[in-house]
């Protein structure tokens, strides 16, 4: 497939991913509302919020990094999405994946958060700084089990290419890494809870505690870009976990079903748990998830 055509498909993919992410955010709010016995907003509320934020007239900013932070966030999400093959074998949906993309993906996952940290720190709000310090410490903690799980999968498949890892899982449900590498799956799916920042790991945004966390000072169009960036970031993470553990997908319907299940694992956990304190959260990730990750790596090494 020629490069311009591939680029066109990727742009369409990004737009679809943003729309899917916004729709999912609406579904999450609806699900949360039903769990709490409320009716909840319409599922398309995310689109209305985005539109409203775009048509607000005033946009106050606090300096260059403040301007750039939502852009970094969106760039991190888009870059991550572009590196992950959505459907392996369909050139239009493979994006720009290449041999060794998993290493770059591991880096890009945290690019947006780092940019966000710089920008939010410039806003000068104390809640932003508290949120950033919490977020970065938690990120360091859940990165460890996730990295160990990824190393186990890559060592088992003998490749750092996501496409190769997907191809290694073909041949039925029981060939999925979820079942062939259960310890790696446990480590990664527990780290996934931290990545999505729902309760009990929502110490960064922490409603009622440090009210909005890092985005406290972000308003109107800055916030709308952050919303779009967050949507595409969520979709990219779901697709990555689908590729790594649920054997990828052969068509878009399968992508929808699998990513939905992956994402709602963290939402349902979030709906029923209260919030950890910062040090509890870090201790949690450095405890059993890390032990599972180390065990997964050792098992792969022993089986070689």
């Amino acid at each position: 497939m020629s490069f311009p055509l591939k680029l066109m498909w990727s742009v369409i993919g990004i737009l679809v991913a943003i729309a899917y992410g916004l729709l999912i955010s609406g579904i999450i709010r609806k699900v949360m509302a039903r769990i709490q016995g409320r009716i909840g907003p319409p599922v398309y509320q995310g689109f209305i919020d985005l539109g409203k934020l775009l048509v607000l007239r005033t946009a106050t900013h606090h300096g260059v990094m403040f301007y750039l932070a939502p852009i970094f966030r969106a760039a991190g999400g888009i870059g991550l999405y572009l590196l992950i093959p959505v459907v392996v074998g369909v050139p239009a949906l493979e994006n720009f994946s290449f041999t060794g993309d998993l290493l770059l993906v591991m880096y890009f996952m945290f690019f947006g958060s780092l940019g966000m940290a710089l920008g939010a720190a410039e806003s000068g709000h104390p809640h932003s700084s508290i949120g950033i310090s919490r977020g970065l410490s938690q990120m360091t903690a859940f990165e460890l089990p996730f990295a160990l799980a990824v190393v186990a999968l890559a060592a088992s498949a003998g490749s750092f290419s996501i496409s190769d890892i997907v191809m290694a899982q073909q041949g039925g449900i029981l060939h999925w890494n979820l079942f062939t590498h259960p310890l790696a799956a446990i480590a990664a799916f527990l780290a996934f809870l931290g990545m999505n920042m729902y309760a009990p790991f929502n110490i960064v945004g922490a409603p009622q505690e440090i009210p909005a966390g890092p985005p406290t000072e972000f308003n109107s169009s800055f916030l709308s870009l952050m919303m779009a960036g967050r949507s595409i970031f969520a979709v990219a993470k779901m697709v990555l976990f689908m590729d790594l553990f649920l054997g990828g997908a052969t068509n878009l319907l399968e992508v929808l079903v699998k990513t939905f299940l992956i994402y709602f694992w963290s939402v349902f956990v979030g709906a029923v748990f209260p919030r950890f304190r910062t040090e509890q959260s870090i201790r949690f990730f450095l405890g059993w998830p890390t032990v599972a990750g180390v065990a997964a790596v050792l098992l792969v090494m022993l089986n070689r």
Binding site: I39, Q45, D49, T60, P211, A212
Partner: peptide, 22 residues
Amino acid sequence: TTARFDMERFGMAMRPTPRQSN
């Protein structure tokens, strides 16, 4: 914000900061 009245039905939400409120 509770189940009995639920203003989120109308797309309304509580925001903690004036920068994000209308």
